[in-house]
Amino acid sequence: MIDREGVDQKPDQIIDIADWDTHQDYEVFPVGARDKSLLVCPDPAPFDFCIPRHNYLFKEAIKSAKDPGKPRHPEQYWAELIAFRIGRLMRLTLPPVFVAIDSTRDEPGTVNEWFMGYPGSGEERHVPGGDYMQRLIPGYDREKGREHNLSTILTVSKALAHTGTLTHDWQVYWGLCLCFDALIGNTDRHQENWGLIWSEDGPRARFTPYFDNGTSLGHELQQRKMQRMMRDPNELDGYLRRGEHQMRWAKGDRRRLPLIAGVAAYCKHFPDIRPTLIERLHGWCEDDLKTMLNSLTQFDLPHPFTQERAEFVAFLTLERRGRLLQALEN
């Protein structure tokens, strides 16, 4: 992935994808619950933070089962953008995310930069995590993913490291992944939301950057629920206790891995990772988060990011960070 550290979208730089070409292979991208299209950025690009002729996923909010024409959670697309920006506060490698609109339908969403195909990157291929789960678990149900588990993922990681194939530290990668997901409350790191990128040089492989992070940040909560959680510690505790990773620790476990306790459990197995996670959580301050969130309230889009939701996302994220640090530092 090329250096994309400097990308920044201002409120007056909303991308209109109405005239973007659809990728010749994917008019509707087939993976995931939300409607998404694989598009090609025009040349010249509309803004300098977009890459001409690069692929981007346009993602909409999940539609209602009762009324497919309406979103179930209209503000969900903001979670994808906020997760990207929080990831950057943690100095993680994430594909850039920008808010956008299809003006022909007045449909807001995000354009998520595809993490392959950058200029000069050479020949690469992406192998989703589901491929490895199917190889190691006979009869693995890829649609439901009930047997998705961290132990099998770590078996794959160790095997690749043993052969000298991996280009980075898998223990750090998965520790940061679990920590990031716990911080934002991401419950959707299923077998299609991680994978390996293989190059022909060697061959060599690296894990994908952390992508598809929008099922997070309390996006599903209505205003009354948000207000109650900010007033009532018991309601907040119950919500946070119910938070679980999509995966289990081991295939036969009855319960999925709890978000915060799962990070602490990982660090018991790999204690050298603990200082890195603590440092990444301490590496940004409350004002950094609130300034970023408040800036998003300036974007003029359907289903805007309100000041009330900005305050709640800050409250929820800081509460999760505090609990993560307590679990890691004690």
Results as ranks from 00 to 15, higher is better:
265 A>V: 01
50 C>G: 03
149 N>S: 03
117 G>L: 08
67 D>P: 02
224 R>K: 12
167 T>A: 04
166 L>P: 01
156 V>S: 01
258 P>R: 06
36 K>G: 05
108 P>I: 10
169 D>W: 01
191 Q>M: 10
317 T>P: 03
81 L>K: 15
328 L>H: 01
238 G>R: 14
103 S>R: 13
179 C>E: 08
303 H>E: 05
255 R>F: 09
4 R>Q: 12
193 N>E: 07
35 D>P: 06
323 R>C: 12
63 K>I: 11
20 W>K: 04
44 P>A: 13
102 D>E: 10
117 G>H: 06
21 D>N: 07
228 R>L: 15
325 L>F: 09
159 A>G: 01
311 E>Q: 12
319 E>L: 04
84 F>H: 11
2 I>W: 02
1 M>Y: 01
238 G>C: 07
287 D>W: 12
81 L>F: 06
95 P>L: 12
217 L>P: 02
322 G>W: 03
17 I>S: 01
179 C>P: 01
76 Q>V: 05
255 R>M: 09
64 S>D: 15
102 D>H: 04
79 A>C: 09
72 R>W: 01
238 G>E: 14
40 V>R: 10
302 P>G: 06
140 Y>G: 04
310 A>Q: 09
60 E>A: 13
254 R>I: 06
102 D>Q: 03
117 G>K: 10
170 W>D: 03
255 R>V: 08
134 Q>V: 11
267 C>Y: 09
283 G>Y: 08
293 L>D: 09
197 I>L: 15
159 A>Y: 02
186 N>A: 04
320 R>E: 08
178 L>M: 15
216 S>T: 11
91 R>W: 01
237 D>G: 01
241 R>D: 15
126 H>V: 07
308 E>G: 05
201 D>N: 12
104 T>Y: 00
84 F>N: 13
120 G>A: 09
13 Q>Y: 08
271 P>N: 12
71 P>Q: 08
71 P>L: 10
252 G>Y: 06
330 N>E: 13
256 R>C: 10
183 L>G: 01
200 E>H: 08
108 P>Y: 02
174 W>K: 02
213 N>R: 14
325 L>W: 04
225 K>L: 09
131 D>E: 13
31 V>L: 15
163 T>D: 10
208 T>Q: 10
222 Q>T: 02
218 G>L: 13
157 S>Q: 04
90 M>Q: 04
281 L>T: 06
324 L>H: 06
310 A>P: 09
231 R>V: 07
327 A>K: 08
279 E>I: 00
5 E>I: 14
198 W>H: 07
92 L>T: 13
33 A>C: 08
13 Q>D: 10
136 L>A: 12
15 I>D: 01
174 W>N: 07
86 I>P: 00
254 R>W: 03
303 H>K: 03
85 R>G: 02
156 V>M: 11
34 R>F: 02
119 P>C: 06
298 Q>G: 07
258 P>S: 07
209 P>K: 09
235 E>F: 11
181 D>T: 10
82 I>G: 00
290 K>E: 12
94 L>E: 02
182 A>S: 15
51 I>V: 13
277 L>T: 09
55 N>Q: 14
23 H>M: 04
168 H>I: 02
253 D>K: 11
290 K>L: 14
192 E>V: 10
98 F>Q: 03
87 G>W: 07
197 I>T: 15
276 T>G: 00
